[in-house]
Design a protein around this nucleic acid. Structure first.
Lengths: 221, 221
DNA sequence: CGACAGGTTGAGTGAGCTCAAGTCGGGTGG
DNA sequence: CCACCCGACTTGAGCTCACTCAACCTGTCG
């Protein structure tokens, strides 16, 4: 219903193809389905995208969230997961496997694949955490890090999306975030807006030793 | 102690570099550590390798198992995880980022990265499963599939390794496997040797609808 | 204003973790 | 050869954390 595509074609003859095609999509739009032929890969210009697959028992697994400058849809042959717009998004679309102009693109493809691999690793990393608090903390930190480290952060996806990404229920996610707020690690300004109060403690919970500071992570229940 | 390296150098002048260097390592040998400069990537000739990282609270996350023909260590700059020999292994070692002979390797690198990405996706896929039974079943199937589909399969890694890969405890892994044996889905011939009796049921538990046959996966508790 | 999607919170249950024995097999030394 | 050890595995008992079920709240949209 609300799905709508607006294409700003920049492919007017002289225009360089490598710039990609700008595509604007409404919230909820399905960019591609699992098993579709992987004819394009995408770079996020603005907004948030989620990639997901459906398990045999019907439950959804979100394999990644993609923000500005992230790439997704880098698959060979056919897509291994579907992709949907979490918010309204603007994407840059590129043709995959450009067998015709294989020149400059071949080495560029390496960098694209590396970025995709990095995204996959980020997802794996989240799953390494044991408890709900650990996972949610790690997730929040991953968002903060991508937001340039500002303490006030917008969470574009729903609790349900987060839950399906961390392999928890939306109840547990909600409870855990509320718990963080109760402990004054964060402040909620509506469900989607979070202000980080104690990043240090949050990093301890996540237990990644991410970059700066103390490595003497010792949990105090 | 038992760590020992035997190198069969095939780099005698005329030999093509692309063949790599054969390396033989004993069980338990640490191939590289997290944060080491990523100077080589590897292909498994025989045996099994695990890649792992250590979380802030000290617990271990195994990010992948690698068997014959699998590649690992495909990182940019520095390794994101360490790699260890699960069994005695023979590896083919390749120099990373061959800035000198960038010609044939550039497009080959794309294929290598794709394989690495596939491995990462396999790991993510395992984590998508909710219960211990689901995860262990999916794990067993992944081994069976790589073993050419023979019903008798050797499990080279310990219960502890499996647990750290599936984010479970070794107790739960052991209990779940015993449960499978009790239900006659599998037969154990020692802890490391498993014979699959009911692959169909196992696939239902894993809930992936993997490849052949019925897609009407509907769980019956 | 009602409908609805998203979110929060409570109560009870159960799967998986913790703690604790106990078993099995392969090595090593007397 | 047997005693012993040690690492890997198994199994039981109890507890806890996260899931299930359920109710309610809040904001948005028609």
């Amino acid at each position: 219903m609300t799905d709508l595509i607006t294409v700003y074609s920049r492919e007017a003859d002289g225009e360089q193809r490598s710039a990609g095609q700008l595509v604007s999509l409404n919230k909820g739009f399905v960019i591609y389905h699992e098993c579709d032929p992987a004819n394009h890969w995408y770079e996020v210009v603005s907004g948030t995208v989620r990639t997901c697959r459906f398990m045999g028992d019907g439950h959804r697994q979100l394999t990644g969230f993609f923000y500005c400058n992230d790439v997704f849809g880098v698959d060979h042959g056919h897509y291994r997961e579907s992709a949907e717009a979490v918010t309204g998004v603007v994407l840059r679309r590129f043709a995959a496997a450009p067998s015709s102009q294989a020149e400059s693109t071949t080495e560029a493809r390496g960098r694209i694949l590396e970025r995709a691999l990095e995204s996959a690793r980020q997802c794996i990393f989240l799953f390494g955490h044991r408890t709900a608090a650990n996972r949610v903390a790690a997730f929040l930190i991953s968002i903060v890090d991508r937001s340039g480290g500002r303490s006030g952060v917008r969470i574009p996806m729903t609790r349900s999306d987060i839950a399906d990404h961390l392999n928890l229920t939306l109840h547990t996610v909600s409870r855990t975030i509320s718990e963080f707020a109760k402990r004054r690690l964060i402040v909620l300004d509506g469900p989607q807006n979070i202000r980080i109060l104690d990043l240090e403690q949050l990093r301890l919970l996540a237990g990644d030793g991410g970059g700066d500071g103390d490595e003497h992570a010792r949990e105090s229940a």
